[in-house]
């Protein structure tokens, strides 16, 4: 792909992303939002491919387009389909957003230009990775060699994060049927259920 072509693809995809984000903000039908979220992820996966990040694009498509959409649909099935309140304007939110965005725009003026082959980030550590991937590790996919070896420890952390999420969801939602008898009661009471805080209960 020529550079101009990529530029055009970039602009088109980013514009579509912005539109779908605005639509997500305004729509009150949460199913539509879920569908748009999936579309958003697939669009960004497309953009990622255009930006040469094939591994990331793959993951984003699988996670954003797949898993998180399924999760959201599952959540909606268990909760509600519509947002009850109409979208309203929030000044504090706008101010926070303007401040944050302003800081980023301010930063862009000193950022290396887009696509600059002389960007500092390319000069420092990366050449070693490319050479090392070829010679020391012998894995053609440089992303894999960094992910699994150079920064393998990060990936260990990443697995721990996923594990945490699994434990967390099990803790919060797991085994509902068995728990119903003792948890359902407390769940509907206004907190400090006297039954659950009897001193005798813990005397053992």
């Amino acid at each position: 792909m020529g550079a101009e072509m990529i530029t055009i693809v970039n602009i088109v995809l980013l514009t579509m992303l912005c539109f779908s984000a605005v639509a997500i903000m305004l729509l009150r039908h949460l199913f539509a939002v879920a569908a748009l979220t999936g579309a958003f992820s697939l669009l960004s996966a497309g953009l990622l491919v255009a930006l040469d990040a094939v591994d990331v694009a793959f993951t984003e498509a699988a996670v954003g387009g797949g898993i998180s959409t399924v999760l959201m649909l599952g959540t909606l099935a268990l909760t509600q389909r519509r947002e009850h309140r109409p979208p309203r304007f929030s000044l504090p939110a706008l101010l926070v957003v303007i401040a944050t965005g302003g800081a980023l725009i301010y930063a862009t003026s000193d950022m290396p230009a887009y696509g600059d082959p002389n960007a500092p980030a390319l000069q420092h550590v990366v050449p070693v990775y490319i050479e090392g991937s070829r010679n020391d590790i012998g894995v053609p996919n440089i992303v894999t060699s960094i992910l699994a070896s150079y920064r393998g420890y990060d990936t260990l952390g990443e697995v721990a994060v996923i594990f945490t999420a699994g434990i967390g969801v099990m803790f919060l939602l797991g085994r509902r049927r068995e728990d119903e008898d003792d948890e359902g009661m407390v769940r509907h009471g206004p907190g400090n259920d006297p039954e659950s805080s009897e001193p005798e209960e813990t005397a053992s």
């Binding site: 591994d55 996670v63 992303v143 990443e158 996923i162």
Partner: peptide, 20 residues
């Protein structure tokens, strides 16, 4: 640059964990 790709792979995973 492959390094940001690696970082973002990790970040995506963290993101989905948070979402879940």
């Amino acid at each position: 640059n492959p390094l940001p790709h690696v970082l973002i792979l990790t970040a995506i995973v963290v993101g989905i964990a948070t979402t879940a």
